[in-house]
Design a binder for these strands. Sequence first.
DNA 1: CTCAAAAATAGTAATGATTACTGTTTTCGA
DNA 2: TCGAAAACAGTAATCATTACTATTTTTGAG
Lengths: 129, 129
Amino acid sequence: MLKYSRQRESIKSYLDAHRTHPTAETVYQNVRQEFPNISLGTVYRNLNLLADMGEILRISPGSGPDRYDADCSPHYHFICKECGTVLDIDMEHQAQLDKAAAKQFDGTITNHVTHFFGLCPECKNTKLL
Amino acid sequence: MLKYSRQRESIKSYLDAHRTHPTAETVYQNVRQEFPNISLGTVYRNLNLLADMGEILRISPGSGPDRYDADCSPHYHFICKECGTVLDIDMEHQAQLDKAAAKQFDGTITNHVTHFFGLCPECKNTKLL
DNA sequence: CTCAAAAATAGTAATGATTACTGTTTTCGA
DNA sequence: TCGAAAACAGTAATCATTACTATTTTTGAG
């Protein structure tokens, strides 16, 4: 049975208010303003809980720590090869990919995750100089 | 300047011969048959080197250790939610996705990585019982 | 409201994957 | 054949995350 916790509430509302795909560490540093004694373990436990309940999304960018996103709608992410920033991609979800992949496959395909890579707007400009 | 090494040769040929997307640990255990004194660090260093040179592919499956693949052609992977197995997906590469993603995006998109999730053929059968 | 069981917490230790460091060995071109 | 550069083995360290434990918080029944 799930019980309310002020810490979880604070973590969730931080994510709701900041769509920057923060890491657990970033969430920790910020929620600490409200709960100076919160422990990193509590942040991880609640992020996992929220993700398991489907209230937030976990993004695993191939390298570096996982990111979290309050936007649970199926959408894609961009990851900057230079600075690691994670940005939302404004593009419709390609549900047909799952069917295309299932054609020659004997198992069951339920979903897919796509990450786009390249240079974010800022790093792109820096490279021009 | 890159110098030849018997250890790197052995790692590369293990990958060439086994298209099972092994982890660094699995490569280590197997190459150890030929080089009993090889260290895990050497395996990691050479896998990174080969990946940087574009001779092998690194697959980061969101959870668990990275996998390596001698097949560098752009292709997709399936990851079993139950057992973690990584399998090749027989499906053409969707190059147009990069362009679609770039439309509303101010940075530069060079490539994308897509992982399909679900149940592998074996776990699917096990679930039926 | 009170109180106790269940859940959550803080603090800390442990784990797993990977990288970094160091002294020795191997490679390879002059 | 010889010496600089690169790679090595072995080990220590790092990073992200999970596990453990004693204490505190939540919540529903009386």
